[in-house]
Amino acid sequence: MAGQTEKTNVMRVLEQKNIPYTAHAYDQLAGTDGVSVARQLGQEPERVFKTLVARGASGGLYVFDIPVGDSLDLKKAARAVGEKSVAMIAQKELLPLTGYVHGGCSPVGMKKQYPTVFDETAELFDTICVSAGKIGFQVELDPAALIALVGGTTADLTV
């Protein structure tokens, strides 16, 4: 993809907060599942994080960011946010609740800032990638800066 990568809302938020990032674009036709995206970006899947949204037993919404090749352990996720249980929200609820579509959901710039938990492995890397808020785009940045920006925490979240 030649020329300037289009700016997403996520990129604008990072720039406003003076958080350095590298934008990456990928070809959606080559696959939008996380592992395919990581491969296209030349990144290890452990460093590319997907953003998942779940509802707790109390009705509260939570955001979980985990490596693209992993699965969210709902029991660990519930423990991390102090809920009895959590369940993934229906795909049709994603856009109205977050402003993002499935495959382009980012922990940055949601309509409302929900409690956000990153898998503890995020802290093992100098940089990680998350969605730039639009299918076809990712941002790579310092996980500590990202976690601080969204007021996030870390926990063991994967199966």
Rank of each mutant, 00 (worst) to 15 (best):
T5S: 15
V130I: 05
A2S: 15
S58V: 04
P45N: 14
A144Q: 11
K76G: 06
G42R: 10
V35N: 07
Q43Y: 13
F125C: 06
Q113M: 11
V48W: 12
P143I: 13
Y114V: 07
E6L: 13
Q16N: 12
L97C: 05
T5L: 15
T153V: 07
V108A: 08
K84W: 04
D65R: 01
L95C: 04
E93R: 08
A38L: 01
S58K: 11
T121R: 15
G56L: 09
K134P: 04
A155G: 11
T121K: 11
E83C: 04
E93P: 09
D73V: 01
V108Y: 08
G82W: 04
F137W: 01
P107C: 03
L124H: 14
K84G: 09
S85D: 05
A30T: 09
A148T: 12
V117S: 07
G133P: 00
T127A: 04
T154G: 00
A80H: 02
I147T: 05
M11I: 15
K84P: 08
P96Q: 08
M88N: 06
L41C: 04
D65C: 15
E120D: 11
S106R: 00
S58W: 06
Q91S: 14
G59D: 03
K75W: 00
A30S: 13
I89G: 10
V150L: 14
K7N: 14
T98A: 08
L124D: 10
T98G: 06
A57S: 14
A155E: 05
L97F: 10
L149T: 10
V37A: 10
V13C: 11
L97K: 11
S71C: 10
P107N: 02
Q113K: 11
Y21H: 04
L97E: 02
G56D: 07
L29E: 14
A132N: 01
V101E: 15
S36F: 08
F118L: 10
A23W: 02
Q4W: 05
A87K: 15
L157Q: 03
L74E: 15
D142H: 01
T8S: 15
A38G: 02
T32F: 02
F49S: 06
T22E: 13
A155I: 12
G56I: 08
